[in-house]
């Protein structure tokens, strides 16, 4: 039976891309009154058909995470997020060459033969105030975070 190892990876150092997104949303797109922060994570969802997922996850993290500048969290067969922000999952809907390369590298050169699939996404963590946070998150996703001709998105969760 296959299992999915979700590897959430984020920068420990300041994330310039997230800062630019926040700046653009606040200064150029009118979200200054509802958006108070933006953070970002990389998400690897790695499907394996055998092996101890916790041990495999440690091995994947050694290859995919640079612990000098990044932190990570492993979730097996689930994807949970903390409270306080709206997580927006963004991924390519066209072929993702980097995900394919990652899968080939893990399976081939690095010897993780139990890997059967790798998917890659970006999680935008939108710290929003107000009552209509999901609607605002959708507006932000469609206004800046995706190009609908190549990307897809999903609002994963919204806790108060």
């Amino acid at each position: 039976m296959s299992q999915k190892i979700n590897l959430r990876v984020w920068l420990k150092i300041p994330d310039a891309e997230a800062a630019t997104v926040k700046n653009t949303l606040v200064r150029r797109m009118g979200f200054g009154d509802v958006l108070y922060d933006v953070k970002k994570e990389r998400l690897f969802s790695i499907e394996v058909d055998s092996g101890d997922p916790q041990e495999l996850a440690k091995g994947f993290a050694r290859e995919l995470v640079n612990e000098n500048k990044e932190s990570y969290k492993v979730l097996i067969d689930e994807l949970r997020f903390e409270e306080g922000y709206v997580p927006v999952w963004v991924a390519l809907k066209i072929e993702d060459g980097e995900a394919i390369s990652t899968q080939e590298r893990l399976r081939g050169r690095l010897g993780f033969t139990s890997v059967v699939n790798v998917k890659r996404a970006t999680i935008w963590k939108l710290y929003l105030s107000g009552m209509d946070r999901v609607a605002k998150a959708r507006e932000i996703a469609e206004g800046l975070l995706i190009n609908p001709h190549k990307d897809t998105y999903e609002i994963l969760d919204s806790k108060p």
Partner: peptide, 16 residues
């Protein structure tokens, strides 16, 4: 422009 952050051209396109 803007280091291709988010995706190429996305941030610059929002400038006044």
């Amino acid at each position: 422009s803007y280091q291709d952050r988010v995706r190429a051209g996305a941030i610059a396109s929002k400038e006044p």
